[in-house]
């Protein structure tokens, strides 16, 4: 399946992937509203790890046998059989955080928005053609592509 891959050699630690992710997942889909009105700062589903000079944007790998799906007690976390996208049906989620502990990459983040606990994870912007983090990366440090069989 097509996934987002980070290219650390070109990641420049600007964190715009996070900003774009937040906007793409906001109600308004407008940068200023998302941050100022919806107060979504810090709710990105991709996040940049930084260890100067290296930085990388990490996000869900959409595993074949996703532990988060296996661990999800409510059945909210699913892997779409057609697209392979692993995503959380937020209305079902009870915020138990089992998925957070299940994820071997540590890319599901326990977040509380308006008192509601939600595991934030990349859903590959399934409503868009291409993930916002990839589209908005100013240095093509993120690519969205098919890389064939996984190890």
């Amino acid at each position: 399946m097509k996934k987002v891959y980070a290219r650390p050699a070109y990641c420049m630690n600007c964190h715009l992937c996070e900003v774009n992710c937040i906007v793409a997942h906001s109600k308004s889909r407008n940068l200023l509203k998302a941050f100022k009105k919806e107060k979504l700062r810090g709710t990105a589903r991709v996040f940049v790890e930084e260890r100067k000079p290296i930085s990388i944007a990490v996000q869900c790998r959409h595993c074949n046998d996703p532990r988060c799906v296996a661990g999800c007690i409510s059945g909210a976390m699913v892997k779409d059989t057609e697209t392979g996208i692993v995503y959380c049906q937020e209305e079902k989620c009870v915020g138990c955080w089992t998925c957070v502990v299940s994820c071997p990459y540590g890319v599901i983040r326990p977040i509380e928005i308006d008192g509601r606990k939600l595991p934030l994870k990349c859903d590959l912007c399934k409503e868009y053609e291409e993930p916002a983090c990839v589209v908005g990366c100013p240095n093509k440090a993120l690519v969205f592509e098919e890389r064939g069989a996984e190890v």
């Binding site: 930084e50 260890r51 996984e150």
Partner: peptide, 19 residues
């Protein structure tokens, strides 16, 4: 507090990213 993939040796995190 910054523990993450980058805490591992480079070949490890490169492999993880390539997953």
């Amino acid at each position: 507090p910054n523990f993450g993939l980058l805490s591992f040796p480079e070949p490890v995190w490169q492999r993880q990213l390539a997953h």
